[in-house]
Write a protein that binds this DNA or RNA. Sequence first.
DNA 1: AAAACATATCTAATATTCTAGATATATAAA
DNA 2: TTTATATATCTAGAATATTAGATATGTTTT
Lengths: 100, 100
Amino acid sequence: MNIVEISKVLSNKTRVDILRWLKNPEDNFPPHQDIDHFNDGVCVGFIQDKSGLSQSTISTYLNSMQNANLVIPTRHGKWTYYKRNEKVIKAYTKTLKEEL
Amino acid sequence: MNIVEISKVLSNKTRVDILRWLKNPEDNFPPHQDIDHFNDGVCVGFIQDKSGLSQSTISTYLNSMQNANLVIPTRHGKWTYYKRNEKVIKAYTKTLKEEL
DNA sequence: AAAACATATCTAATATTCTAGATATATAAA
DNA sequence: TTTATATATCTAGAATATTAGATATGTTTT
């Protein structure tokens, strides 16, 4: 858990938005077609649509968020679903509260 | 209190270090000459020495931290002292814990 | 008033980030 | 096995961040 690396992720509004959207997928995204739940998170396409940015940009963002261990990807067929890594997110906010 | 702006400040190791040093000035800096306390924080020169970066760089950093309301400057004679803005720092960590 | 000192601002070179289009890869469908 | 679809990666131009030297400003000292 790296404060500077995670802070870099959070220094962009869209990436903060994505983390927030993923907190309540039911409220922020339409239901998936192939699976009837958000257990593994939300597919890239939905996140892209909601953000309004390009596919490659969102893929890059999600990759950086994954490198910082803020999200966890799961492949289902041709889709990749991303969900929050609550453990790391909690560790980060805890560390900030204690050490900042 | 702007999450993205504050996260930008925290996305640099030196700036995070500065905030931490300012938490315990007595432990991290030599005593000031003209005033015998750290009530208004630490002068720029000490922070510069400790960081190892140039005067202009540290001044720029402190300015960005001030713009994000993370630190409060006070002028004493020819020195500028910077101290943490605990109110904003706390608001930030609280918001992150609740909303992230 | 001049010199010295601390800090801020200006300027510029280099590095990094942002962002999208093009292309590659992986999977599913026809 | 060709075609379509979803996502990842590559490439590159524009924007922003990093950083320091030079210079300006404000303050104190002589």
